[in-house]
């Protein structure tokens, strides 16, 4: 008994050796971990998100009253080399993602992969239960004949595909029930359009930014110390 537990422990230490793991991290330029629980936060994917979205500390916000204005302002700001932190709009403004230079969302891949996995699982599950685990003569039919198993497979694909899309959307956008909304300006959920330029970059040209805003009929400009 003790031999077995010793072997298991050795195996554990070998595979999940924190020192070795941290060495590896160091090699790839990542901070060492002190606790396993830090893993998803320090470095890694989560950290990357944090880097990209949270490391800015100051934004310059222009508030617009019309979608065309914010659209043009965004496009010009980006072309002028400003780093666009985000645009806050009350509805999905057509063309804004292009104006901001956003990449196409990869949620489709989540849906596809999870749907495919769900389909495989559903087919296997039905095969297992009907033909392997306890094959029963039901109406003289063969234990396995794919016709009867298509509907459930399809429904399962849609169910899991849909649910994982939803979860991916929420996780990726960091939306969760009860999350406190950070609004940079009142009215972005009503009729205001706010363009927030990141000021983290060195040499952020306030004057030029304001001029660009003004050109596009900005209603208000705010220099915010913290990101929304």
């Amino acid at each position: 008994m003790s031999r077995l537990s010793y072997s298991l422990r050795a195996l554990w230490m070998g595979v999940f050796n924190r020192r070795a793991f941290n060495k590896l991290r160091w090699k790839f330029g990542l901070e060492p971990l002190h606790y396993w629980s830090e893993w998803p936060l320090k470095g890694g994917i989560a950290a990357k998100w944090q880097d990209s979205e949270q490391c800015t500390s100051r934004v310059l916000v222009g508030v617009f009253g019309d979608q065309d204005h914010v659209l043009e302002a965004t496009r010009e700001c980006r072309e002028a080399g400003f780093m666009i932190h985000d645009v806050y709009v009350p509805y999905a403004v057509h063309g804004l993602d292009e104006a901001m230079g956003l990449r196409r969302s990869r949620l489709t891949w989540v849906t596809f992969i999870m749907g495919a996995l769900a389909g495989a699982f559903a087919l296997f599950g039905q095969y297992y239960t009907q033909a392997i685990d306890w094959p029963i003569n039901v109406g003289g039919k063969d234990p396995w004949h794919i016709h009867a198993y298509v509907p459930v497979t399809f429904e399962f694909v849609v169910l899991i595909g849909g649910l994982s899309t939803m979860l991916a959307l929420f996780i990726r956008s960091k939306l969760y029930p009860g999350k406190k909304a950070k609004l940079c300006v009142e009215g972005t959920t009503d009729d205001k359009f706010a363009l927030a330029l990141a000021q983290r970059c060195t040499g952020f040209d306030h004057e030029r930014a304001r001029a660009l805003f003004a050109k596009h009929h900005v209603e208000r400009v705010m220099d915010l110390g913290d990101t929304p």
């Binding site: 709009v89 009350p90 403004v93 993602d97 969302s105 929420f170 956008s173 950070k182 929304p228």
Partner: peptide
């Protein structure tokens, strides 16, 4: 409302 703030990045994914 899940902390929705009208971010265009989220709108895009949305």
């Amino acid at each position: 409302s899940f902390g929705w703030n009208g971010s265009a990045r989220i709108w895009s994914r949305y």
